[in-house]
């Protein structure tokens, strides 16, 4: 926030408009997707504080949340530097990106903004994301942008632990009691419509592939499917069809109704006290 401390409020709001419009180079847009996924899923974890089914899980959920917020800060920090250097835009820091953008400027997957629901919903969401995130990050460690490769490598270690944990829970719940099985299956069926977006390729992904940054989308899709199939089989859960109808749009800023409320809560203080430059 120090970076914008000398700007007037009016100046800042014009900078804010910039984030949605001229500043969206493919690289910036791509990094916003990475950062926003981590930020929004992290915020879902913040909402879980004090609600875990056991104390050990309380600690584990906050571990994951801390990792995700850390990743968000790294990706969004890089975005803010690129905005300044490549676009001669006003310097906007990671906090500004997190707390001053409107919903349509967020680029996260619809999957990560889905509400917490019960523990099966929480772990189902986490697993479907982790199974994709791990393989994506692994690919990004080979990006020809050293900063991206570095953040990806650090994030990959964390995401590998997240995937192990969420896989274990999907298996425990799926192959646990009758009730837990039913809840896990229902969660999976509900969340499945948001998985199409994980594997969907648009012009931003294509540009990043050509630039030597994003990994090959077919390999990523195959690996995600293998991980999902292995875990669901062990969990005795049935996998919904890959060609089922899919709800997409998060990557281009067309979100579900849930994101607006999540942001209203998360962005409350910076929005209510726009003149505050430090906290």
């Amino acid at each position: 926030m120090q970076n914008i401390s000398h700007q007037s409020a009016a100046h800042r709001s014009s900078a804010q408009k910039n984030t949605a419009q001229k500043t969206q180079t493919p690289l910036i847009d791509y990094l916003l997707r990475l950062g926003d996924n981590a930020l929004i899923l992290g915020q879902r974890h913040a909402q879980l504080c004090g609600k875990a089914p056991a104390l050990e899980e309380e600690l584990a959920l906050m571990n994951v949340g801390l990792d995700l917020f850390g990743q968000a800060r790294n990706w969004l920090g890089y975005v803010s530097e690129l905005m300044a250097s490549e676009l001669m835009a006003d310097k906007i820091d990671a906090d500004h990106l997190a707390f001053r953008r409107d919903a349509q400027d967020f680029r996260n997957l619809l999957l990560v903004e889905q509400p917490n629901g019960d523990f099966a919903d929480i772990m189902g969401r986490q697993f479907l994301f982790d199974a994709w995130h791990v393989h994506l990050l692994e690919g990004l460690t080979h990006a020809n942008d050293p900063r991206i490769a570095e953040v990806a490598a650090k994030s990959l270690k964390e995401a590998t632990y997240h995937l192990r944990r969420s896989s274990e829970w999907v298996i425990r719940l799926g192959d646990g009691t009758e009730e837990s099985h039913a809840r896990m299956q229902r969660a999976l069926d509900n969340l499945w419509q948001f998985t199409g977006e994980l594997l969907q390729i648009d012009e931003i992904d294509q540009a990043m592939l050509e630039a030597g940054i994003a990994p090959d989308p077919d390999t990523l899709a195959t690996r995600w499917k293998v991980t999902v199939e292995e875990v669901l089989e062990e969990a005795t859960l049935s996998r919904p069809a890959y060609d089922a109808w899919m709800y997409t749009g998060g990557k281009v800023g067309h979100h579900t109704e849930h994101l607006g409320f999540l942001l209203a809560e998360m962005q409350y203080l910076p929005r209510a006290y726009p003149d505050a430059t430090v906290w």
Partner: peptide, 21 residues
């Protein structure tokens, strides 16, 4: 925690609450 005003404060507060757990 859901309304912490910066990423740094959010991380600090989450880590503190985790310490208490």
């Amino acid at each position: 925690l859901t309304r912490a005003p910066t990423l740094k404060r959010k991380l600090q507060l989450m880590a503190k609450i985790q310490d208490e757990a």
